[in-house]
Design a protein around this nucleic acid. Sequence first.
DNA 1: CAAAGTTTTGCACACGATTTCATTTTAGGG
DNA 2: CCCTAAAATGAAATCGTGTGCAAAACTTTG
Lengths: 347, 347
Amino acid sequence: MAEQTIRARGRATADMVARTANVSRVAVSRAFNPHASIKPEKRDHILRVAQELNYTPDMAARSMVTGRSHLVALIVPDVSSPWESQEVDALTSLLQAEGFATLLFKTRRDLSLDETLLTYMKGFNPDSVIAYAENVRPQMLSRVLERAVPIYIDYPDGEDQPEATEPAPLIDRLEVLQRDGLEQAVALMQGYGARRIAFLGGLTSSLGARSRQRMVETIMAEHGLGEPILVAGDYSYDTAYRATIDLFRLGDGADAIFAVNDQSAFGALDALRHELSLKVPQDVMVAGFDDINQSHWKSYNLTTVKFDLEERTRALVRLILRRLKNPAAPSLTETISTKLVVRGTVG
Amino acid sequence: MAEQTIRARGRATADMVARTANVSRVAVSRAFNPHASIKPEKRDHILRVAQELNYTPDMAARSMVTGRSHLVALIVPDVSSPWESQEVDALTSLLQAEGFATLLFKTRRDLSLDETLLTYMKGFNPDSVIAYAENVRPQMLSRVLERAVPIYIDYPDGEDQPEATEPAPLIDRLEVLQRDGLEQAVALMQGYGARRIAFLGGLTSSLGARSRQRMVETIMAEHGLGEPILVAGDYSYDTAYRATIDLFRLGDGADAIFAVNDQSAFGALDALRHELSLKVPQDVMVAGFDDINQSHWKSYNLTTVKFDLEERTRALVRLILRRLKNPAAPSLTETISTKLVVRGTVG
DNA sequence: CAAAGTTTTGCACACGATTTCATTTTAGGG
DNA sequence: CCCTAAAATGAAATCGTGTGCAAAACTTTG
């Protein structure tokens, strides 16, 4: 009997299931909605028939009437970078478990988020948007995605405060306390005799990077270490590699390098060892930030500030789901801490 | 005037644009469809009004009637692994340029693709599905996704041939010629005096890994090198690290290690240098497969077989788009070659 | 057994677009 | 200036699903 039904466009529809199971189409809809009231035996029967016909409710049609697409958009500059790929992986995992699919978009890291992409993305009606692009301001997203309620990832140590120009009563926040880990790192380096610490930065357009740098400057001053030697970078291995060589060949060098992220730290480390023939940590110490999967690899064995990915993504997803379930809920702030992971590059 | 329009659910609809621009709703639709016939000045006017209202056509509604969702689903075991993340990045980039969004799903690497995920995914109506899971057979996907036409990624050197049980007249193929690169690698190692070569494998469930192993066995036999010493692995750094230690502590060692992928090669390399105090390449040579971003990092500087990502993803997207544009087109095969990249770990 | 309350059911409409098709407008040629 | 072909237009149908509402079926209670 199932074989007799004609399939439109290759997929079974609720109508076909209804006809095959001798019930109304509404009943099929109810069978798939856990909160609907339907006689249990009837639901079972329908679900059985549905499975036989290989039927799944069409999300597009469903989203039209419910207003929920069960899609979460991720805007990421470079999925191939270790840190971002690990974040995407963790988020996808959690979201999938909650019944949401991840919609992935790329944007250029050095550019502000462009409206073209945003309007295009809006067409897919994502229930939520997580943007890792630099220079993102909440109002930028909300202008395009009227329905979306932003979650602001804040680095309260830094100079940046969300502008209070808009009323925005319902902004949830994810506060990252970078101070703890950074201070431990600086203290450890100082303890081992570091006096001239260089800070290998990221793009100046990035909130997180700027905040990290300011924090390090503050902490060093508090510890009587003066100002860090500032070295420009862009998070990448190659740039860090070249910048480190320049620092020692053209500049005055340093006795410790604190990198804005682990990937940069790897570049610095390799430049010191393989190009400048300096020993780490004997001649120069190196510390990073993130604690990505590769940081414990023996060739690097990097001392770094752990930015707990698990904890971070979990909190983020929690905030999103809560807001989605109840758009009018009072705003909430989750806090994430950082701490130093001591390995072999400082000591 | 734009401010006066009432917005349903926070988004402007074609109706509102039509009313504001004093045209019919059909005209709005036509203005957004490049192939529709509409007077140019009228289109311009509508597009201007649309932009003012911040309107974008709803993909869900559009996909219902056109049958195209402009979504491509990616099923990946672990986005955080370098190789896979680079592939996801490249694919997303190309697809986005063609107007397709990437829908990301995770699956466990050690498990076969489960139907639950597939049925769930089907609900989103992706125009195409790219699955990197192990143990995927075309018929598995096509049973669930009736509409989809599979593209078979074939490793013609290996033992695997797609079963001819189903008629399947329209299967496009992406042939990966692994032989070239593998042979160059084996020859190079032999040239530098390697006689006892170990092959550090991947999961035996993987087509690509099995094929690589067989190919290496064949090539070694042809070169009079006998059988490789087989070491089990799972693509990961940590497993490779431990397996290499076991090979030398519990087993008889080897004078060259050929790893199934670069990440494994890193693990082997670090085990040799940091745990077994052996010099690479003087005591033991190491070669990998993939040429991921990290392979040129100075600490590894890995000699490896380049599996050209750019070329590969480009061909894949080309096949998909062609098939999407013309579902009845004759089946096509694209061919990708591999070649050795010589760096510092063999010599 | 009747009345009141609760659960289940199905009709009809809504969601936001695209696509025929018949009709009107415009353009082109002699 | 008229006739014909081509282009532009809008009304209505359609895609596959969820939901409000009123009627029906069933259950409980007095």
